[in-house]
Amino acid sequence: MSAQDRVDMAKPEVTTRDHGAGVGRSLLWLQNAGLPIALVVLVLFFSIRSDLFLTVQNLRNVGLQAAALAAVSCGQTIVILTSGLDLSVGATVALVSVVSALAINHFGMAAGILCGIMTGAVIGVINGILITWFRVFPFIATLAMMSVLSGLALSISGGTPITGLPPEFTSLAYTRVGGVPLPLIVSVTVLVLVFLFLHYLRLGRHMYAVGGNRQAAILSGLNVSAITVTAYAMCSLCAAVGAIILSARVGSGQPSLGGSLPLESVAAVVLGGVSLFGGRGSIFQVAVGVAFVSILSNGLNLLNVSSYTQMMIVGGTLIVAVTFDQRFVARS
């Protein structure tokens, strides 16, 4: 009577659940509070080590530097929430920078910026189509696109910066509203828009559904492909905003912009507690992640740490963050 015995014997009384939830809760707490605490420690450390760190001028600098990364990380967050990844954000920034610089020189500022943004949207849709229709892994699809877009940016620009941009464009980067750099205001706006999108629009909730349980999303009749394509389109749109900010700062269309953005954006997003496995994370935590990465690099600059060493430190930080993510997934 094997089957019957199994009925009698296979009766687990779940006794370990409370214990497990306790571990999960403390880990969750660490996830949520760990980064802000680390940020505070970082700020304290740099304030003590450098007199220049806690000055209005420097904090404005940090804000300016963080602006582009923040915009790009917003997009990266959306993609990672759907359990995807976009490695092409850096190359997207380069191409958008070149395209918008050329367009600004030909059609004027507003039309030029619009051209750049549209370019971003097209790139995102291509990424999304590669991943959904052609079923290329996000990692491979966006890695390949990174090369394609970089090459495109270099050949359009002939490998040199596109200069001669009107001063009203370049001054955008240094405009302040109430003492706050305009680029930072733009990025914070993007952040708030992404927050509203993720929390109050059905499509935003569907991003969580696709990343959290793809099967559930399919069974509930969601158009998973369309949702995925939208996610990549939004990611590249955000990258395009970052490209405009960076181009204004450097005052030209640069085919070499954004090389470190894939790593930095993924680092900021994962530091912000967004799971690389998808479906879990909040955009405001990512903002803290962006602040962490930006302040880290600013502070290291002030301490005269070489950019080579900085690269190692950012890489190490990402590894630590991912280790936490893995632990968390393993426990829950």
């Binding site: 109050y200 629009l201 059905r202 909730r205 349980n213 559930a216 969601l222």
Partner: peptide, 27 residues
Amino acid sequence: AIVPELTVAENIVLGAEPSFDRFGLTL
């Protein structure tokens, strides 16, 4: 087929969420 990060209610209405607007954009 449960999406862990969404609320119980969001899971129950997944794919057929009630909306504020005519186009079904908001939740």
